[in-house]
Write a protein that binds this DNA or RNA. Structure first.
Lengths: 118, 118
DNA sequence: TCCAATACTATCATTTTTGACCCTAGGTAT
DNA sequence: ATACCTAGGGTCAAAAATGATAGTATTGGA
């Protein structure tokens, strides 16, 4: 009787949210962005070293995706051995506050993660 | 000659960042949190409807993960047909600013995603 | 001549994530 | 008696993401 029309009970536009996620979600992507937000310029090898367990393949795939989405830039120096530097673009830099706040949140709520492994 | 020790060129503590990601990354998870941040209380069916393409199985898996991490709470009403409501916990609510800023970022930088499909 | 250095690529293998589909409980309305 | 309602669970299957491993190019130096 007092049944409401469930077809339109309430709605939300997830598009901008999904759109953002499409660019920044996926393993390693946010880590890469965070790295570059902390250290303006990094070479391929430095990133790899900093992330530790990422494989070269995955790293280059992710770097390419981020570059395709214009969040990072690739600067190649014509020398041997090769030297390639990565930086955030202006668009990428607008993510810095978000990345920082995620890190801060982690500091507050995920500190004891390591030690809790029994 | 001027070779530096690459073993310690620079360092960063990714732990809090990774810790945070561990709780909120993965498909659907942020969407769920975002949903619940927009609508304080939602029933299982409402969430499913709002997210559209999520399957019941995946939805319940994700809800459980978020609950296990104390980001959301499950309130079950002893009635038939069943009624279960989900809300953010206090801890989960601390994510709201982050979720909102991601959405805002998406509005600014990912608006034309839909139309650009040719 | 051969090795070192760097930033990758290519080719699989594997893991992780996601989805399809059907099933259940147990009051209520028909 | 029986279909209906909701919030899932169970069991595969499929797809997507990630990983392992080895290899390439170039040039200066031992």
């Amino acid at each position: 009787m007092d049944k409401i029309n469930l077809e339109e009970f309430r709605n939300i536009d997830m598009n901008p949210f999904d759109g953002a996620l499409k660019l920044i979600s996926g393993k390693w992507k946010m880590n890469l962005l965070f790295c570059l937000s902390e250290f303006d310029t990094m070479r391929y090898g430095e990133i790899k070293k900093t992330l530790g367990s990422i494989t070269p393949h995955v790293l280059s795939v992710k770097l390419k995706e981020l570059e395709a989405n214009e969040l990072i830039e690739r600067h190649e120096y014509p020398q041997v051995p090769p030297k390639v530097e990565y930086t955030l673009t202006d668009k990428g830099r607008t993510l810095i506050p978000i990345l920082r706040s995620i890190c801060d949140w982690g500091k507050e709520y995920c500190v004891d993660f390591q030690d809790k492994q029994e």
